[in-house]
Simulated scan of single mutants.
Amino acid sequence: MIEVEVKAIAKEFESIRKRLAELNALKIKTERQEDTYFNAPHRDFAITDEALRIRKIPENDNLKVFITYKGAKIDKSSKTRKEFEVGVADAELTKNIFESLGFKEVATVVKDREIYQLEEFIITLDTVKKAGIFVEIEKDLEDGSDFDETLQEIFKLYEKLGITEGFERRSYLELTGI
C-alpha cells in the first residue's frame, strides 16, 4: 500500500472546520493517539527515513492497538511512502517482542486528532504535544500509478481549505524534537 500524504502547519482550526463543512466533508471521529516509535538494531531509521511504531487509541473502555511500518519517503514534496499496518491485541506484549528482537524504544508522540473524510481523502486536524497544530490530507493507493494525479488533487484540496503554505515533510517524531 502506498500512502500519499501531505502535512501542513495550521494557524487555527475554526476556518478549516468551516471549509470542511462547506465541502460536505464527513467528520468520522475524534481520538487521542499515542505512538511509541522504535529503532532497529540493524539500521538507523533516522538515517533510512523509516518508522516502526505501536499506536494505542483509547476508545470507550477498550484500547485499540496497531503496529505500523512506514518506508522511506518516495518523493521530495510530500510524505508519500509504503505503509503497512496491522491490529494487535496487546501493546505491552508487542513492545516486549520488539525489545527482545533488539529494537529500542525511541520516543512517544501523543496527538489529539479530528478525522474527516471527503470522497476518497482522509483529512485530519492534529494537535500534537510539543509540536503544534497541523492538517494532514492523505489517500491510499494500491500502487504508485496514480501518484502524480493524487498529489495534485491533495494540493488542490489544500487550496480549497485556504492553505497554500507551511507544508511540512518532517514526521511528528522529528518535529517534537524528542
Results as ranks from 00 to 15, higher is better:
V109E: 01
K64A: 14
A10I: 00
A25S: 08
L101P: 09
R169P: 02
T150K: 11
A91C: 13
Q152I: 08
I163K: 11
K73T: 14
K79R: 12
G71K: 10
L52G: 04
E92H: 00
G87L: 10
I9E: 08
E142M: 13
R43W: 03
Q117M: 15
I67R: 03
Y69P: 04
I2V: 07
E114D: 15
Q117C: 14
E153W: 06
I115D: 15
L125A: 01
K82Y: 13
R113A: 11
F167E: 09
K79D: 10
L175E: 07
D35V: 14
D140P: 15
E105T: 13
E83G: 03
E168S: 07
I2L: 14
A25Q: 07
E85A: 01
I16Q: 14
E153R: 08
E14G: 04
L173A: 12
E34N: 03
E142V: 07
R19L: 05
E31G: 08
F13K: 05
K160C: 11
V128P: 06
D90Y: 06
L161W: 09
K18P: 08
G166H: 05
V65N: 12
V135Y: 01
L118W: 15
L141Q: 04
V65D: 15
E136F: 03
H42P: 09
F38W: 08
E138K: 03
K73H: 13
E31D: 08
K73V: 10
K7A: 05
R17N: 12
S15P: 13
V88G: 00
Y172C: 11
V86R: 06
T127P: 00
R53N: 00
K160I: 04
K29G: 13
A72C: 05
A89M: 15
F147G: 04
E5P: 13
K160V: 05
L23N: 05
E114W: 14
T127F: 01
K11V: 04
I163Y: 04
F13V: 01
A72V: 00
T68S: 01
S78P: 06
F66G: 08
G102A: 14
K56D: 01
V110F: 04
E5S: 09
A10S: 01
E114A: 14
T108A: 00
F103H: 05
S77Y: 08
T36P: 00
R17F: 12
L93Y: 06
